[in-house]
């Protein structure tokens, strides 16, 4: 794989993302139409207490006296210029709010992705190596239980045990603001706050990847190329690590890409449980103030994030699997 071909592939994938983003924008517009009240009222935020003049101003700016298609065009143009309106509740532009709240969510998501894919693949690998022994049963049982547990409940139980009873970790927030930590102290403080939310969000996906990894490992072990490897005189260990592992990782990578959207959804729940100041927490607040425009902004930015992560996953996949043709 030469660098240039890969670059061309990435550019093409980015171009393919444009219609998807456009689709999300149109969907946001349709959802705004569905909301009670006219667009200006929704955009102003129902409990935002906007003045009548401001609403008039909005009506003019969004061309609400014009046909729906023109309104749509105006809306799409605004979104592509990253003008997502104003949130009275937060007295701030929606785009600023989103950028400000994005970092905590990315931190939580990134940690979760690494934790769940890494540990999930590892436990699936070991479950497959120890298949049908008590160790496999323990891993599989743990996975199937974690796979059935609602995220919010895991979060609350962890708070109950590790914060309320044991007092090891803080119950909420991302950092201890009154301490004014700086540098490494601050990083450590954030990490300390991150432990419970990251575990909560990881558990379900960890279970998912562990189960998938175990199943594909077992499936791959039955394939002919493994028999060939065995007939070459390789040890079971060499077969597992040199041959089966990489083949079995491919579906896990695919699944990780598919699950990014769900991961963001899960972070809404987890952030609201732990008062983690990210997009999810912002969404939770927007729900209660019935600030639909802000909610849609979060929806839009999440979709963009998913599209972007999917491209990253596709590139990783291309690097892992020589059979994928990058220049079609």
């Amino acid at each position: 794989m030469t660098g240039l071909r890969l670059l061309r592939y990435i550019v093409r994938r980015l171009l393919q993302a444009v219609p998807v983003i456009l689709g999300v924008t149109v969907l946001c517009f349709l959802l705004l139409q569905l909301a009670p009240g006219d667009l200006a009222e929704v955009l102003a935020g129902e409990s935002g207490g906007a003045s009548a003049e401001y609403i008039q101003d909005l009506r003019a700016r969004y061309g609400l006296d014009k046909p729906v298609l023109v309104q749509l065009a105006v809306y799409v143009r605004n979104v592509f210029l990253f003008d997502l309106g104003f949130s009275f509740r937060h007295s701030s532009k929606v785009s600023d709010l989103l950028l400000e709240r994005m970092m905590p969510t990315l931190l939580l998501m990134g940690t979760t992705l690494v934790l769940s894919v890494g540990l999930g693949a590892l436990s699936g690998l070991f479950a497959a190596i120890w298949v049908r022994t008590w160790r496999d049963h323990v891993i599989s049982l743990g996975a199937i239980i974690a796979y059935a547990t609602p995220l919010f409940w895991v979060g609350l139980m962890l708070i109950l045990v590790f914060s309320v009873w044991l007092d090891w970790f803080p119950t909420s927030g991302m950092e201890n603001v009154v301490m004014f930590y700086e540098g490494w102290d601050r990083a450590l403080d954030v990490a300390h706050h991150l432990v419970l939310p990251a575990i909560t969000l990881s558990l379900f996906y960890l279970a998912l990847y562990a189960r998938l990894m175990r199943a594909t490992m077992l499936e791959q072990r039955g394939l002919d190329y493994v028999t060939t490897a065995r007939a070459k005189g390789l040890t079971e260990r060499q077969i597992t690590f040199r041959h089966v592992l990489r083949n079995a990782l491919l579906p896990v990578v695919t699944m990780a890409g598919v699950q990014v959207g769900a991961l963001l959804g899960g972070s809404v729940v987890v952030e609201s449980v732990f008062a983690w100041p990210g997009l999810g927490q912002l969404a939770f607040e927007a729900l209660f103030s019935r600030d639909f425009n802000l909610l849609l902004g979060i929806f839009f930015i999440s979709a963009c994030l998913v599209v972007f992560v999917n491209i990253v996953v596709d590139v990783v996949y291309v690097l892992l699997d020589p059979r994928i043709k990058v220049d079609e």
Binding site: L223, D224, Y225, T227, T228, A229, R230, A231, K232, G233, L234, T235, H243, R246, N247, L320, D321, P322, R323
Partner: peptide
């Protein structure tokens, strides 16, 4: 293991699936 591949080797029916696709 020393015999497999060393003293006795094997050829299979479907060379496509008998080779590791990623190697």
């Amino acid at each position: 293991r020393a015999i497999r591949g060393g003293r006795i080797s094997m050829i299979f029916q479907e060379p496509m699936v008998a080779l590791n696709p990623l190697m």
